[in-house]
Structures are given as structure tokens and as C-alpha cells.
Amino acid sequence: MIQAGFETGLLLAQAPFPEAMGAATLNHYLFVSAAMFALGLIGFMTRRNLIIMFLCTELMFQAAGLAMIAFGRYHMNFDGQTFVIFVLTIAAAEAAMALALVVLLFRKRESLDADLWAELKG
């Protein structure tokens, strides 16, 4: 059931799905999650298009969701998945609001450049 070594990877493909995953550790998923989060963060900081910035926040949501499901799997309970449902809910709500705001902002300036909105200058 427990497969060892990379060389057996192809064999694993024929193995029943859940059982084949025994080799991956929690750390693998957490790493993917962290990297995804970092990418979202970097995107948020570098991109100037408001829509892409919001897409980057969605990427960060995804990273969080992945981490939660991995933790839930590791600890053998379903709270992680339940929470991802709520993350999806909030993401949907956030997308609705954010996109409405983006549309408003776009109507004002005919541009999606976030740098145009700097009225809160100190």
C-alpha cells in the first residue's frame, strides 16, 4: 500500500486514488500553499491593474484553502473542508463587492490604474 521511491511513481498511477497519496507529507502541501500565497502577495504588490490585484487576492484565498484542506486531511477531520466552503462564500461575496467597486472606479477615471487613486495622501 505504501509506495516507496520515485521509480514506482508510474505504478502508483494505477493504484486506487486515495491510497496512492500516502507518500506526500503535509509539508509538501503547505509548501505549495505558502508559495502560492507568496505569489499572490507579490502579484498584489506589483500589478497596477485593479482587477488583477483582486485576482491576486483570490490566489491568496486559494492558498489558504489548500492549507486548510491539507491540515484537515492530516488531522483527520472535516473542519478544514467546511472552512473552505466558507472561504469560498466570502470570496464570492468579496468578488461581487470588489468588482462592483472596480466598475464604479473605472467609470470615474476610465482607467483601472490603482495609482490614480491616491487621494489619501498624508
Binding site: 498584489f44 504588490m45 490585484m53 490603482a114 495609482d115 487613486w117 487621494e119 489619501l120 498624508g122
Partner: peptide, 22 residues
């Protein structure tokens, strides 16, 4: 303090704040 030490930091640009937060 912010007026005298870091007047340049208050740019009003979203990215600057995000960058500093991170």
C-alpha cells in the same frame, strides 16, 4: 513623528502601503 520623520511615506498609493505592510 510621521510628519517630520516620514512625510514621504504617506503617498496614498495602495501598493506602497501593501509593500510596507508585507
Amino acid at each position: 513623528g510621521s510628519d517630520t520623520l516620514a512625510p514621504a511615506s504617506q503617498t496614498g498609493v495602495l501598493h506602497d502601503y501593501a509593500l510596507r505592510m508585507i
